[in-house]
Design a protein around this nucleic acid. Structure first.
Length: 472
RNA sequence: GGCGCUGUAGCCAAGUGGUAAGGCAGAGGUCUGCAAAACCUCCACCACCGGUUCGAGUCCGGUCAGCGCCUCCA
């Protein structure tokens, strides 16, 4: 807890336990959420690449957090349930599966364990009881609060001192709290509150920090390695997690990682500002891999500025990468046995650059630059003439391992097109044959007409030395 | 008010005190029936003002601008 970049040493050699604060499933996820998910997915993939075994735990918050800590706030899940005329559990399930679908599309690996808050009420109650026993929490009017003043370390993560905080300026001071900065561990359920559980303090529901402590400790154990989340959760959410865990006698996460925000027009993309683009909408019309490429193009601790121009730029850049990879794979089956020492050395250099970048706090922009360096060398060699099998293999492995496995940029690969692929392929062969016929007879108007028509439905035709080629 | 972050080319974006990665866009050229792709070449007074240093985008101080958190937020 040094509030700076430090070398990582796992608690158990070769193994890493990491926990990521997951989504509250009351609405569709947006691009900002994707930045977080992709960032930590890349962390996980990088650790795997370097030989670690990773247990990756991320929660699903299906108990609505209160909109604020006083009682006038409404539970977001309940509010949504009323709006959509659904049971709260239906809302949670609906948006949980929506989230899963988005993450699958973005090629985010599934968590090792994906616990739900509502499935861990007993664990949360147990933790609260420990806190009361140790004198760090108190019951008041059917609710339980963490006693911030009893825990001097509160604030160590975010570097805040209690005395620096303005008291009660942003919310009405609750009369049943001893201190306005105390936070709820358990809330008494008001009469109309649907989601409620029995507890030693009457019927109620858990506070909005306790689930992460209970579930991360349960599945990763005390002093687990890495805890991640958005930087906007650093305070108070993560601060509270640490305080309530350690005050209960359980050493908490040893390393903290916070991703920065995604902005649009310089402002944080967020639900409350309404300036968000849902992944559902975005992925319906755009290649998810381009979205992922865009996200990976800035460092996880940096702000990512999103715009149409940035997206177009990502699309072009991503295509440069995939075209080179595809060309390598096209040539591989017929590649000669010659050796290309200079090219091989360059490929090795780019692989090293990539790995060095990832070792240095997961510097994905530098890693991507290495991929482009690789691409320039490979393309130059390809343009210069025949390239031997060995070098092509090395290039292919570099792309698939680094770009594919580590950055997760090549989901699906070649076999993703589905049942129509064969039919489409056959039709395209036919069309291209016809066009070649025109071209050989110098009937360029007809040939160009065909090409324009195909372009209008999103098919690009390129004439190369080896004949025509098409892509979508 | 407190804690913290950012300001690098038209856009996106790295940058460990030693002289500005990468991508997109743009310009010129090679190739091509044309185009596309690819290749080659070109494209930065690092917000401003001081200071430390042989040397500063990088360190220190200040100014200006913007952002995040301190309410729910990834």
């Amino acid at each position: 807890m040094q509030r700076q970049k430090v070398p990582f040493v796992p608690g158990v050699p070769g193994r890493v336990g990491m926990y990521l604060c997951g989504p509250t499933v009351y609405s569709d996820a947006h691009l900002g959420h994707a930045k977080k998910e992709v960032a930590f997915d890349v962390v996980r993939r990088t650790l795997l690449h370097f030989g670690y075994q990773v247990r990756y735990v991320t929660n699903v918050t299906d108990v609505g957090h209160l909109q604020n800590d006083s009682d006038d706030g409404e539970d977001k899940l309940l509010a949504r349930a009323r709006l959509e005329q659904l049971e709260p559990m239906e809302v949670a399930d609906k948006y949980f599966w929506s989230f899963v679908r988005d993450m699958d599309a973005l090629n985010v690996l599934k968590p090792s364990i994906n616990p739900r808050a509502t499935g861990h009420i007993p664990e949360q109650i147990e933790l609260i009881e420990e806190l009361i026993r140790r004198g760090h929490a108190y019951e008041s009017g059917g609710s339980v609060y963490f006693d911030v003043r009893s825990w001097p370390e509160y604030g160590k993560l975010s570097g805040r001192r209690l005395d620096d905080q303005e008291e009660g300026t942003r919310e009405a001071v609750r009369e049943d709290k001893r201190d306005p900065r105390d936070f709820a561990l358990w809330k008494q359920a008001e009469p109309g509150h649907i989601m409620r559980w029995e507890s030693p303090w009457g019927e109620g529901f858990p506070g909005w920090h306790i689930e992460c402590s209970a579930m991360s400790l349960k599945y990763l154990g005390e002093g687990f390695d890495i805890h991640g989340g958005g930087i906007d959760l650093e305070f108070p959410h993560h601060e509270a997690e640490i305080a309530q865990s350690e005050a209960a006698g359980h050493p908490f996460a040893r390393y903290w990682m916070h991703n920065n925000m995604l902005t649009i027009g310089g402002e944080k993309m967020s639900k409350s500002k309404g300036n968000f683009t849902t992944l559902r909408d975005l992925l319906a019309v755009h290649d998810p891999m381009v979205v992922r490429f865009l996200l990976v193009g800035s460092h996880y601790r940096s702000i990512t500025e999103f715009s149409d121009a940035a997206f177009e730029s990502a699309r072009s850049g991503y295509r440069r990468l995939t075209e080179a990879l595809h060309e390598v794979e096209r040539r591989l089956p017929t590649a000669p046995g010659k050796s290309d020492p200079a090219l091989l050395e360059n490929i090795g250099g780019h692989v090293r650059a990539f790995e060095d970048a990832m070792r240095d706090d997961f510097n994905t922009p530098r890693a991507v630059a290495a991929l482009f360096g690789l691409t320039t060398d490979v393309n130059a060699a390809l343009a210069a003439g025949e390239v031997g099998r060995e070098a092509l293999e090395a290039a292919r492995t570099a792309y698939r391992t680094l770009g594919g496995d580590v950055l997760g940029l090549f989901a699906g690969g070649t076999a993703e097109r589905g049942d129509d692929a064969q039919v489409v392929g056959a039709l395209m062969d036919l069309v291209l044959q016809a066009r070649q016929h025109y071209r050989l007879n110098k009937q360029y108007a007809q040939a160009d007409d065909l090409r324009d028509t195909l372009a209008s439905v999103g098919v690009t035709v390129e004439d190369t030395k080896d004949g025509p080629r098409w892509r979508r």
